[in-house]
Design a protein around this nucleic acid. Structure first.
Lengths: 147, 147
DNA sequence: TTCCTTGCAAACGATTTGCATTGGA
DNA sequence: TCCAATGCAAATCGTTTGCAAGGAA
């Protein structure tokens, strides 16, 4: 699941949509591919040392979301963060720190994830709602903020 | 768990913070107490037929969040929704519709919720993260959008 | 009177968009 | 050449804040 493998997959996915995989777009995918959790436009722009202007970062995020390459994530007032979609990154959940507002990914061991699936399926049966995915958001304090 | 019971509980909680429970604030609690899911400032202002100006709605939401009466919820770009805290509404999860962006509450049957707790506890052991709460977000299409 | 609360308008911060320019196929 | 992609600046949208007026203790 290396970054170059991401590039190949993203490139072919974008080709399907008739969209170019330009250096700026690659750069954004690189940053997200090596992040520890979802990032916002400003954070991405920052990690790119301003080489990609903020408005282009936003446009890139929109294009990649549209193509199903990125998934938006909302955990803080007025800030949208993005991460690679699950078909690129694998399925995972989030630890949301109520101290610093940061978000970390967690991948559950198979037995736990299987249990989650069972719960989600049960809920589907209980409600008029056809589930396509799920995410467990755990709020608490990260190691750094939990002083 | 009637609305008037909410009012009593909220009133005493606010009194502890030395904050008044004014008609405008009651109105906001009323709207949220009878909503089917979290609502944003504009939606609340709307349901109050504009009787409480938008900026006052925002201030009320801030006061009530500060006092632990409301919990913010983020599920859509640039929009914060609020709902009564769990000590007022009970613990529940969310069905997020990818069609219309709406959010519905679901309360799990005890056995399922017990299972969720077990999962969250296991995750706590696996990571350097002290969990204070959790919420399962299920994405999919609501009955209305699932045509 | 003393603070808290409110209403309005101006200010903000994140995100989007118009427009002219650049760059690939 | 032709259309997608880019950069910059201006515009938008949700939200916050300053300030003067209103109200309860």
């Amino acid at each position: 699941m290396s970054v170059s493998s991401h590039h190949r997959q993203v490139e072919s996915r974008l080709a399907d949509s008739g969209v170019r995989y330009t250096p700026g777009r690659r750069a954004v995918v690189d940053v997200l591919g090596s992040a520890e959790g979802p990032l916002g436009a400003a954070e991405i722009h920052e990690r790119l040392h301003g080489r990609v202007p903020l408005s282009s970062v936003y446009r890139t995020l929109a294009v990649l979301e549209e193509a199903g390459v990125l998934i938006p994530h909302f955990a803080q007032k007025g800030l949208t963060r993005y991460e690679l979609a699950e078909w690129l990154r694998g399925h995972h959940h989030h630890l949301v720190c109520i101290g610093c507002g940061g978000v970390e990914d967690v991948t559950l061991p198979d037995p736990l994830e299987a249990e989650m699936d069972r719960i989600v399926k049960s809920i589907g049966k209980l409600t008029e709602f056809s589930a396509t995915s799920h995410s467990l958001e755990i709020e608490g304090r990260c190691a750094r903020c939990d002083g």
